[in-house]
Design a protein around this nucleic acid. Structure first.
Lengths: 221, 221
DNA sequence: CCAAAAGTGTTTTGCATACACCCATGA
DNA sequence: TCATGGGTGTATGCAAAACACTTTTGG
């Protein structure tokens, strides 16, 4: 048995997604410490002895972005021996979905920066975070097709077009308007508010809201 | 920040499935040490500093059952603070599928026993292993419907009925013979050997084999 | 000859897909 | 009045589901 490495410590990494500018975006932080000084990475950190792994993910999400009560799902555990050059760290990866509306990034002294990047234009990432984000984006697609979690990316009230566009952006394909509306209505996951979204130079759109904002398994596509 | 607990150590637990006697069975070991003396548990153990988490799962699988090169997939990481009464242990759970044919259980001195239990008649389990096995059985169902991994539960040559029964046992529902054969043939994942299975007092069945025994995504049902 | 499982097609049904025009508004 | 996106229904294709009888063997 090797003496070269100590036992591993446990960390969490949280891939935070949101939609804006017709893109799926990922939150990254710029590192201040070696060996990845100046490199971007997914926010995360160690799991403390007195908190569960899930709680650690929530805590890092909260302190890095100020959001809580959002959709957060465990993704996969990355456990290669040399994934962190500075020591043996096993990372439990999570992904989170947050509505962009009113999001304000909290820049802390801990990092040299916090920024959103479109998923298709990520910079070079530290550790195995490229692999983690790819994995997260893949899981997000699968999940979106078989659950109602899209609600966590949208504001309380939204138009059918906004809903459809969200799917289009994440799944990366066009969706037929009429077929989509038919399907969504049959699923009973949204209901009409009586409100109307005015102010744009075209026909105003009806506003809808989710009947329930708890994760539920449904076949959207 | 709490001083009460040290940082966590990392373990793996492997839920090993096989099919026999028309049941889905799980391999359990009987513990010799407190605080779970005499209680059954899923095989597992610590992750060493010089091995990846995946390797640790393979190692524990091999030393407990003597099998290798079987289907092994990471399931979920269980990280509640008090899931192990003797210390802070975060467990990365895996599930494995092995063909029953010729399996011989290796009883080691480490444990008071090694046995197969039908999934619907498990004894009381140590730690959170009840939750882990439920989760594994659920994932197995999902996976079975969307991949070819059933091959890891069957011998090299098998009849269409054996194949169909395997699905029926795991999914817990009857499957129409003709529709099933039609679907399986359309998937191009099995091919006929020229052999025939004789010896039973009924019409002999053709033997088939899997074209490929590597995991592949297909929609079986 | 009997019991038991193997083998084999057709019809029906429901869901996914494809597709185009009119409407309401702000500028 | 024009540009822009909102809103709406039908026809077609395909895959899943339902369904029953004949065949081959061992005993």
């Amino acid at each position: 048995m090797g003496k070269k490495y100590k036992f591993a410590v446990i960390a969490v990494d949280v891939v935070i997604f949101t939609i804006f500018s017709n893109k799926l975006n990922v939150l990254l932080i710029k590192m201040k410490k070696k060996p990845y000084l100046g490199t971007w990475a997914v926010p995360g950190g160690l799991v403390r002895g007195d908190e569960s792994v899930d709680q650690a993910a929530q805590r890092h999400l909260l302190t890095k972005t100020g959001v809580k009560n959002v959709y957060l799902e465990q993704l996969y555990t990355f456990g290669r021996v040399s994934r962190d050059p500075s020591g043996r760290v096993v990372s439990v990866a999570y992904f989170a979905l947050i509505p962009f509306k009113g999001m304000r990034l909290k820049t802390t002294k801990e990092y040299a920066g916090v920024e959103w990047f479109p998923i298709d234009k990520l910079p070079r990432l530290a550790y195995d975070h490229r692999e983690i984000t790819s994995y997260a984006a893949e899981r997000l697609k699968l999940k979106l097709e078989r659950s109602n979690i899209i609600y966590s990316l949208l504001p309380n009230e939204f138009t059918l077009t906004e809903l459809r566009k969200s799917y289009e952006i994440i799944l990366g394909k066009k969706i037929d308007k009429r077929n989509f509306y038919k399907k969504i209505r049959s699923l009973n996951i949204i209901k009409s508010t009586q409100k109307i979204k005015r102010g744009e130079s075209n026909r105003p759109a009806k506003l809808y809201t989710f009947i329930s904002r708890t994760p539920k398994q449904v076949n959207v596509l």
